[in-house]
């Protein structure tokens, strides 16, 4: 019987106590989520987007950093493939999140997997992977309950704050320079990603390339900067690990701890929410 309900529902079966745990775990993040949401809402309206379009974007796209990243592109009417590609690259971190938490979700019916994926933002992923890192269960009502509890708080806080920002954004004079707030919010996503040197080198390369190529049409400079930054980061990483090759055991254990650091730094701590 539970199988039938699970198949018809968009939500996987959940344990109530775990759901409450998930809510409680996400609640302390509400301040950071709200700041992000308000900034994103203000930025959308401030850049010239109409209120109905901004509301539509908030309630469908539900990805703060991608929304902020494409605003300058939409403002100049950039070709849609460039807009989508930019959001795709910014969102690539979610592919890693999905890959590392998939075993808890792959057994679910299709629509439940789609919805769970859709709401699997940075903070929810960070909490979930921290809580169940050592859990042998390949998906359980406890895991799903905890996941949905956190996702619900994240979604409600994010959307409420975004709507507040969209309403407030219309009142803020241009001289306040609120577009800076959008860049600050994006910086809050980048900073924790720069925990290791290859990432710092990649980001520095991307900064230089993007400024140098700012006049290229169709934001080709953006794509060139990403490719250049990734190539440099990978080269620096390879050069770094080649220097440690004399001791493979030590290298492997270092790499494992570096990976778990990455999960913490890309997922946790920073303000990115949706």
């Amino acid at each position: 019987m539970q199988v039938t309900t699970a198949r018809e529902s968009w939500l996987a079966p959940m344990d109530r106590e775990a759901f409450r745990d998930g809510v409680r775990a996400m609640l302390p993040m509400a301040v950071a989520i709200s700041v992000w949401g308000v900034v994103t809402g203000v930025a959308m309206v401030n850049s010239g987007m109409t209120v109905p379009v901004a509301l539509l974007m908030t309630f469908t796209v539900f990805a703060g950093s991608a929304q902020l990243a494409v605003l300058p592109l939409l403002a100049v009417g950039a070709p849609l493939p460039v807009v989508w590609l930019t959001a795709l690259v910014v969102n690539l971190r979610f592919v890693i999140f999905a890959a590392s938490s998939r075993r808890s979700f792959v057994g679910l019916p299709l629509r439940q997997r789609v919805l769970a994926g859709y709401v699997n933002g940075d903070l929810g992923f960070a909490l979930f992977s921290r809580r169940f890192a050592d859990d042998p269960d390949r998906g359980s009502p406890v895991q799903w309950g905890y996941f949905y509890g956190g996702a619900l708080v994240n979604w409600v806080t994010w959307q409420a704050a975004s709507v507040v920002g969209i309403v407030l954004g219309g009142f803020a004079p241009e001289s306040w320079g609120l577009e800076l707030a959008a860049y600050l919010a994006l910086t809050a996503v980048v900073v924790p990603m720069m925990a290791r040197f290859p990432a710092v080198a990649g980001v520095a390369t991307a900064v230089v390339l993007s400024v140098v190529t700012v006049r290229l049409p169709l934001r080709l400079g953006l794509i060139a900067s990403v490719i250049g930054g990734v190539v440099v980061a990978l080269a620096v990483e390879t050069a770094g690990s080649a220097g440690e090759r004399w001791n493979p055991i030590r290298r492997r254990s270092q790499r494992r701890s570096a990976c778990s650091d990455d999960v913490r730094s890309t997922g946790g701590g920073h303000g990115e929410t949706a």
Partner: peptide, 13 residues
């Protein structure tokens, strides 16, 4: 994939 998002965001900011 791990480096691409940071580079893209830096290239926007």
């Amino acid at each position: 994939l791990r480096y691409a998002p940071a580079c893209a965001l830096a290239a926007i900011i």
